[in-house]
C-alpha cells in the first residue's frame, strides 16, 4: 500500500487510521465477548444498522443527492457518493441480476482492513460486516428493504472484496423505524 501523502491529506489519512484502529479494537473486543464468529458477525451487523439509520441523515444533509428513482440510481449513489464521502474509496458497481434487483459492489481496497491479518482461529469472521448493517440501516430509512452480504473478502484470501446487495421490497412510509 503506497502512501504518497502530501501535508494536506496527511491529517485526513491519520484520521482514517483512527477509524480503522478503532474498528479493529471493536472487532477484537467482540471476539473476546462472544464465543463464536457467527455471533460476532451478527453483532457487527446490528451495530452497523444502528449507525446506518443515523448516518443517512448526515449523508442526505451533506451530499445534496435527490430522491433515487430506481435501484440502479441507488447503486450509483452508494458507490460514487456515499463510499467516496465516508471511506474515500469508489467501488465499482457490477454483476447486475437480469431483474435489476441485485448487484455487486467491488472494492479494490477496504480501509477497514488496513493492517489486519486474520488469525487462523477466526476463519468464520466477516471482519467488515459492520458495512452490511450500515447499508441496510441507511436504506431502510429511505424506504428500501435490502439484503446485504459479503460475497468475497480479501481478508479471507479472495482477490477483491465484493458486497452483494439485493432489493427486497419498498417499505411503507408510515412504519416507524426499528432500533435494535
Amino acid at each position: 500500500m503506497s502512501r504518497q501523502a502530501s501535508r494536506a491529506s496527511e491529517s485526513k489519512k491519520m484520521n482514517s487510521e483512527l477509524f480503522t484502529l478503532t474498528y479493529g479494537a471493536l472487532v477484537t473486543q467482540l471476539c473476546k465477548d462472544y464465543e463464536n464468529d457467527e455471533e460476532v458477525n451478527k453483532q457487527l451487523d446490528k451495530m452497523g444498522y444502528n449507525i446506518g439509520v443515523r448516518l443517512i441523515e448526515d449523508f442526505l444533509a451533506r451530499s445534496s443527492v435527490g430522491r433515487c428513482h430506481d435501484f440502479r440510481e441507488t447503486a450509483d449513489v452508494i458507490a460514487k457518493v456515499a463510499f467516496k464521502m465516508y471511506l474515500g474509496i469508489t467501488p465499482s458497481v457490477t454483476n447486475w441480476s437480469p431483474a435489476g434487483d441485485e448487484f455487486s459492489l467491488i472494492l479494490e481496497s477496504n480501509p477497514l482492513v488496513d493492517f489486519v491479518e486474520l488469525p487462523d482461529n477466526h476463519s468464520g469472521l466477516v471482519y467488515s460486516n459492520l458495512l452490511c448493517g450500515v447499508l441496510r440501516g441507511a436504506l431502510e430509512m429511505v424506504q428500501m428493504a435490502v439484503d446485504v452480504k459479503f460475497a468475497q473478502d480479501t481478508l479471507r484470501g479472495d482477490n477483491v472484496t465484493e458486497i452483494r446487495m439485493k432489493f427486497i421490497k419498498r417499505i411503507e412510509e408510515n412504519l416507524p423505524a426499528g432500533e435494535e
Binding site: E17, L21, G24, V27, T28, F115, E117, P119
Partner: peptide, 19 residues
Amino acid sequence: TDVMCNPFYNPGDTIQSKS
C-alpha cells in the same frame, strides 16, 4: 508498525505475521 496496527496482534507477543 503495520504489525502493531493489526488489531489481532497483542503488543508484547512474538510477531507471527505472514507479511
